[in-house]
Write a protein that binds this DNA or RNA. Structure first.
Length: 676
DNA sequence: CGTCTCCAGGTTTTT
DNA sequence: CCTGGAGACG
């Protein structure tokens, strides 16, 4: 077979060993740009060639994007249909397990999955019932606390005990509404495996070969899930220098645990970088070596040294955006590059606005990945909430969202009385609604008119039952959207801007369009509403469109979202103290946080193949005020001989750069010019 | 009792 | 800018 013959030619010796070591535990430390994805995909292809059945292989990733890319590349490599190969995110895999076996934990298999918005709503709801005061109810913080508790990062001894009852109420709510949150997608399968060894045995029986990508970003829970499933044929691939998710529970100490838990690990290091110029690599190495707690390694490259790294110091974020847009135009013309060869990276989503404006102004097509997830947009959530309630009537949180959206005369006090009934009967709101509707006139807690409104609502939901039975989902959803007059509702909601309303309606149309594509894809056998809902809660916007649309466009994204990607030209926007490293992170996490921020910067730098341009604004709008900014400390960590500094207008040679920077710093420390 | 209007506040990163 | 909440109004 040609693939086998080619392996030795296509791979360096370490890569070859990583690909062909199929039995036993193996730890692959893969530096940035060392051909990690290549190794993983070749490894799976090689296993398939060797006759290992698809169904025995389980590859776990962190993002849907990575999962999708991986299976596509394997498909391309083998030319096979991969119907039985499991390439999935940890969370999606959790959903799969729960869909099968959650009944053993007392949930029903049509459970809803609550995202952050739903979680906040449930916390708020529970808090109100338990009479928490408004200022004790910081739902964002409490949500984080609950997540820490649930995943074992905190316990009640060390945490604020006053939220304990709230947590219990929250958990009861989930159970009553037949819903699970994101953390449950990992912790419930673990519980299932522990409490029901027969279930675990079934999965172990099936999956004989495990592979985990981005291993440095596994949380303890995810590691535990992997450990339970794995026998000995488990390959993990990671790079401690690219661990950037500790705030989400990732702990690259798992690399050390792995060596302990799986005796006889083969360790392979991939340190040859195929991606970047020598200059870019030297810069990356220079930065990352300031971290104390890391496996010592140095990437090297056979590529030429390339152009110096350019650092610009624009006046403010608008100037920065103009500079980036104009540079893109310039480089496109000069070097005959296409727009899709550019990546513009930022620390926070809030930085995107001026950049997007500049791109629009300069007629530069762009795509932005990440950002508020498509499925978190209000209008999308509304429609999805309908679908959720149709699939799972007991989902109170989603029911509350839509019961009066669009307005149908069911206001606060009506909901309060329904809630009361639900409380006394110990049932979900839906059951309470049914009880109220069925109650005899004199025992009914609401007026006859209100009761009619409630009944109209329940029959609307029940009237869409046919959605459950596969076939033609998108058409039915379109009919529902028409039926509830959602467009008119939007027009009414945004009286000042019909454009906004139309934009939102467009989003709904693209939702329905994507639904149609999904159900017409022959690879998707189960096109029921359940299947659809289980899938989409875990998706973000970039998973929606099919890649074709992104051709020829500049890629705007957060550094986090850029992990695993590469672009010939990279811009890093906002390399300032307070943003990189982010002030909030430093505040909360101290030195460890700075190290993580440094890794983040390292990830950003190593995305670049040929050219790297970094900008650091002198001023930036934060909230209402304009504040002075200092250049990021990470810029000083790049060896000075690799860098060419630019002032807003005139260029300077690298000899003068250091002195100039010092002067700038001095000026920033003692500004002579009053703020505008 | 429901709806409308105005006002304040604001998320670093994602499944 | 946009969302969500509080309070006034019909």
């Amino acid at each position: 077979m040609s693939l086998e013959e080619n392996l030795k030619d296509e791979l360096n010796p370490e890569q070859y060993r990583a690909v062909t070591t199929v039995d036993g535990p193996i730890l692959i430390i893969a530096g940035a740009g060392s051909g990690k994805t290549r190794v993983i995909t070749y490894r799976i292809a090689h296993m398939l060639e060797k006759g290992i059945p698809q169904s025995q292989i389980l590859a776990l990733t962190f993002t849907n994007k990575a999962a999708k890319e991986m299976s596509e590349r394997i498909k391309g490599l083998t030319g096979k249909k991969l119907q039985n190969l499991t390439v999935s995110t940890f969370h999606a895999f959790g959903v799969r397990i729960l869909r099968q076996d959650i009944e053993q934990l007392g949930f029903r298999s049509n459970f809803s999955i609550y995202d952050e918005t739903d979680r906040s709503a449930l916390i708020k709801e529970t808090g109100r019932e338990l009479k928490f005061t408004a200022d004790a109810l910081d739902v964002y913080k409490i949500g984080c606390l609950f997540s820490d508790i649930k995943t074992g990062r905190k316990n009640w001894e060390s945490a604020n005990d006053m939220y304990r009852s709230l947590y219990e109420g929250y958990q009861e709510g989930l159970k009553l509404y037949n819903a699970v949150d994101f953390d449950d997608l990992i912790t419930l399968p673990i519980r299932l495996f522990r409490e029901h060894p027969d279930v675990l045995a079934r999965y172990k029986e099936r999956y004989r070969y495990l592979m985990v990508d981005e291993f440095q970003d596994t949380s303890h829970q995810q590691y535990e899930m992997m450990r339970l499933l794995a026998d000995r044929n488990v390959a993990v691939v990671g790079d401690d220098d690219q661990s950037i998710y500790s705030w989400r529970g990732a702990d690259y100490q798992n690399i050390i645990n792995f060596e302990k838990d799986f005796p006889g690990v083969t360790e392979i290091r991939l340190e040859q970088n195929y991606r970047s110029t020598g200059t870019i690599l030297a810069a990356a190495n220079g930065v990352i070596k300031h971290n104390t707690n890391r496996k010592d390694k140095e990437l090297w490259s056979g590529n030429g040294s390339g152009r110096p790294i350019e650092i610009y110091m624009p006046e403010n974020e608008a100037a920065e955006a103009d500079f980036i847009a104009e540079s893109i135009q310039g480089i496109c013309a000069e070097e005959k590059r296409h727009y899709d060869e550019f990546g513009v990276l930022m620390r926070a989503n809030t930085q995107s606005r001026p950049l997007e404006e500049a791109f629009l102004e300069n007629n530069i097509p762009y795509t932005m990945s990440g950002g508020t997830s498509f499925f978190e947009r209000k209008e999308i959530k509304d429609i999805i909430s309908y679908l959720r309630v149709i699939a799972n009537h007991d989902d109170d949180i989603n029911l509350l969202r839509i019961i009066n959206t669009p307005r149908r005369g069911i206001g606060r006090s009506t909901i309060e009385s329904v809630n009361k009934v639900a409380g006394t009967l110990g049932v979900s709101l839906w059951e309470a609604l049914k009880a109220i509707i069925a109650a005899p006139e004199d025992e009914c807690p609401v007026s006859a008119g209100t009761r009619a409104d409630l009944e109209a609502f329940t029959s609307l939901i029940e009237g869409n039952k046919s959605m459950l039975g596969g076939k033609g989902l998108s058409k039915k959803v379109q009919a529902l959207v028409d039926d509830i007059n959602y467009f008119d509702y939007l027009i009414g909601e945004y009286p000042k801007s019909e454009k906004a309303a139309r934009f939102k309606y467009m989003n709904i149309e693209s939702l329905i369009k994507s639904m149609e594509q999904w159900e017409n894809n022959p690879e998707h056998e189960d096109t029921s509403l359940y299947a659809y809902l289980n899938r989409i809660t875990l998706l973000s916007r970039d998973d929606l469109d099919d890649g074709e649309e992104d051709k020829g466009k500049v890629n705007l994204m957060t550094v986090h979202a850029s992990k695993g990607l590469e672009f010939p030209v990279i811009f890093i926007a906002g390399a300032e103290e307070g943003l990189m490293p982010h002030a909030r992170a430093v505040e909360e996490g101290g030195d460890t946080a700075v190290e993580e921020e440094r890794r983040l910067f390292y990830v950003a730098v190593t995305r670049a193949r040929d050219r790297l341009l970094i900008s650091s604004c002198q001023h930036r709008r934060r909230m209402q005020a304009t504040v002075e900014c200092e250049p990021s400390r990470f810029l000083d960590e790049i060896p000075a001989n690799l860098v060419k500094y630019h002032e807003p207008s005139k260029e300077v040679g690298s000899e003068d750069a250091h002195e100039m920077l010092q002067n700038m710093l001095k000026n920033l420390a003692h500004p002579r010019v009053p703020k505008l």
